[in-house]
Design a protein around this nucleic acid. Structure first.
Lengths: 260, 260
DNA sequence: GGCATCCGTCTGCGATCCCAGACGAAGCGC
DNA sequence: GCGCTTCGTCTGGGATCGCAGACGGATGCC
């Protein structure tokens, strides 16, 4: 990355992103080490972020965590972002009709990022919680979107086996290779929907369909998640039909939102 | 506020907060005007925030909006913040048992900020969506927390009639005064729960109970929202009992999380 | 209790950033 | 098509920030 023109701003944002990816509050020294910033710089920036409510200092633990102002950015984003604003009610309706949990995600590099989650009654909160990232190739929503990408774009995302690593862990890819993914996505294109069973959460299966924008690009995907051994579960194809209807409707609505 | 030691960082955060409070993407010039920043400074900072994904530029509309990096801060916050992490499953359980929507909020100045929302099936998404702020004195969660504050703290929050204004609108207070609020909160303390019917959303009522930490401070509140004219609605006192059980349990769990 | 380590604050000067304002491009109204 | 307004980029010098490193306090271990 070219050297930022406003290093203090860039460092501030890097620190916020770093904090967002930690499991809990962290000591200031680990922020300095991780981002290779001078300690005094980190303390100065933390002071400014505290003042604005983006960061909280926990003196008893001598750690820093994200504050309420950071949290509030998400409602601003969701309010402004047509996919989240328009998709929320559609996912809610789907969940009400099917009685299973649903979510909406977007592709972000090789990850999916969940923008909307609606939990069905008596179902657990899912690992696919709002704001969470997961590898696209492992999830129903991610597979649905990857299947809708042009071949060149897909090759760019997954040039080699290293692309299947997760969080720097080279063993995370297991047996995944570009050829296996290509075969899987071919099947997704044939059936029109993506599935995943037990790969994200053991015992749960998901069915996802891409939301295509007016030029056919996968702007998002919608999925429903259900216990994969429940006797009351609908056939996957029937669930996929309902998901497709919601995805197509969202595609129409985001087209209208853009005034085309 | 004393002049910030790192103005670029401070300006960046001010711009993010400003964007979070807009209804949609905005032109750069309005950011400069609202925050009284030089236009070239605003463009430089927007460029840095774009690079880091916190902001997106919409060239066709010549506007700027929040980006996914901003959105992701919320999941970091929710993961790290014990109230959200521990409260989510409790609110989910409450919603499953009662069949009505529920949420968890914290007091932030004179506002409540919603950290968790669980929608019951076939119920609308509420105005109390995650990340939203509302005036505390108008909401069940807010009233529950205000009732648990020491009198001096309450007077500090509502010193005069102007304190009831909302978003700078002096007419928003209607007939609210400190004395009326005090009377209302007295009733809340007597019943042990706060109510609100139609004041936040016409046709919907809420019942809220404060979550007290180990020193008796209202760390949060939990509320359930239901149609206030439904023949199938439980009596408010029964709902309040269930909400109280969840609030007390959360109070115990956050005490344990702090190791006391 | 002493020692080592880490935290958070402070200093000052060389490096560089911030901002006023100019400029060309784009968009809009007539 | 023209004129006006707004957008986005660019420049340079005075103002001021960033950072290396010192320091005192806090914490934990022996």
């Amino acid at each position: 990355m070219a050297k930022a023109k406003v290093p203090a701003a860039d460092q501030t944002l890097a620190m916020l992103s770093h904090l967002a990816h930690q499991r809990g509050p962290v000591p200031a020294a680990t922020i300095a080490a991780a981002l290779e910033l001078p300690r005094s710089t980190v303390y100065h920036l933390l002071a400014v972020m505290q003042e604005r409510g983006f960061v909280v200092h926990l003196p008893e633990e001598r750690r820093y965590g994200l504050g309420v102002a950071a949290f509030e950015l998400s409602s601003g984003f969701s309010r402004q972002q047509p996919l989240a604003r328009l998709g929320g009610p559609l996912v809610a309706g789907l969940v009400d009709r099917l009685g299973e949990s649903g979510h909406l995600a977007v592709l972000h590099g090789r990850d999916v990022l969940y923008l909307v989650e609606e939990r069905a009654p008596r179902r657990p909160s899912l690992v696919t919680d709002v704001g969470v990232r997961l590898p696209a190739y492992l999830t129903a929503t991610g597979r649905a979107m990857l299947a809708a990408l042009p071949p060149a774009q897909l090759r760019a995302l997954y040039p080699d086996r290293a692309a299947f690593a997760w969080r720097g862990d080279p063993d995370a890819a297991g047996e995944w290779r570009a050829s296996r993914l290509k075969q899987l996505l071919h099947e997704v294109r044939e059936t029109g929907w993506a599935a995943e069973a037990g790969e994200v959460t053991p015992g749960l299966a998901s069915v996802g369909v891409a939301v295509l924008d007016h030029v056919g690009w996968p702007a998002a995907a919608i999925a429903v998640t259900y216990p994969d051994d429940s006797p009351r579960t609908l056939p996957a194809a029937e669930i996929a039909g309902a998901v497709r209807a919601a995805a197509d409707e969202l595609g129409r609505r985001i087209g209208a939102a853009r005034g085309c």
